[in-house]
Structure formats: C-alpha cells, structure tokens
C-alpha cells in the first residue's frame, strides 16, 4: 500500500513532466494538478522530513559558521558550550508557539535591545528554512 501511495504521485509527476507541451491551454491545467500532487507527496513524506529537519537544525545550531548557538548556550549533546545565554532546554514548555522562537532567532533585539544575540534572520546569517529547522530542533530539547 505505501508503495502504491508513494509511486502513484511520483509517476504522475514524471508523466506530466515528460508529456510534450503542445499548447498553452493544457499547460494551464497541468500546473494546479502538479501542485496538488506535490502537496500530496509532501504530506506523505512529512514524518521523515520532520526528522531530517531536526537533524539539520542540530547541525546548524552547532555549526560555527551558521547558527553557532553552542558558542553562547548550553545545549544537550554539545561539547564546550559558552555561558553568555541561558541554557536551551524545556523550550516547548517555555515557548508553546513556535513563532515566538522563530522571532527570537530572527531578531531578538526587537524584544531586548541590550541582547548579545545576533539578529540571525534580519542580518541574513540564516535563511528562513534554516531558522525553521533550528526551531524544530530546539523544540525537541
């Protein structure tokens, strides 16, 4: 059953992609169908994707050239953490709304002008997707 579910949309996409585009009219119909199929595929893959987002988020959080969260925060699983910021734990309880965490990473100076925390989103240190992956990871702590 999963095979059928996985393969059907993929082969459908493949069919659409390889079908020669003869006229504008059929192309117009194809686009929403393609999006619908992609959405279904994404929905099916979501548990696996969420898992890889958490792993990506952890990587980004520890990477010196990216989030580098470990430089200032104690984080479970990270060696030699810094001490400037608070320990990152129980974050799902502290920030039930993930948008709050996203906002802090995007630009904490908005809430606290004195903060040391770099505005990762505003200054484009991290992309929106990267911030989202880090939030996924933080919510597991």
């Amino acid at each position: 059953m999963p095979f059928v579910l996985w393969n059907a949309p993929i082969s459908a996409i493949a069919t659409i992609a390889t079908t020669p585009r003869n006229d504008a009219l059929t192309a117009l119909f194809r686009i929403p169908v393609l999006f619908l199929l992609l959405a279904i595929a994404a929905g099916l893959a979501s548990p696996a994707r969420a898992q890889s987002a958490v792993a990506d988020g952890q990587k980004l959080a520890f990477d010196r050239g990216k989030g580098n969260c470990l430089t200032c925060h104690v984080i479970k699983g990270g060696d030699l953490p810094g001490t400037i910021g608070p320990e990152l734990k129980d974050l799902k309880a502290k920030y039930p709304d993930r948008n709050e965490l996203t906002a802090i990473i995007f630009d904490e100076t908005k809430r606290n002008p004195q903060t040391m925390m770099p505005p990762f989103g505003r200054n484009r240190i991290l992309t929106e997707q990267e911030i989202s992956a880090i939030v996924d990871f933080l919510q597991t702590l």
Binding site: T71, L80, P81, G82, I84, Q114, P118, N123, I125
Partner: peptide, 21 residues
Amino acid sequence: GQMNFSCAGCHVQSPGERIRA
C-alpha cells in the same frame, strides 16, 4: 557587522563569560 556586536558587548557586558572554551 553581520553579528551586530559592539566592542562593549563582549568586553563590558560579558567579560568572564565564555564563548565556547
């Protein structure tokens, strides 16, 4: 800069604190 740091952020606000090791 991209990190939005001042000299004072590290050396007035945070001396004695660690950044990693």
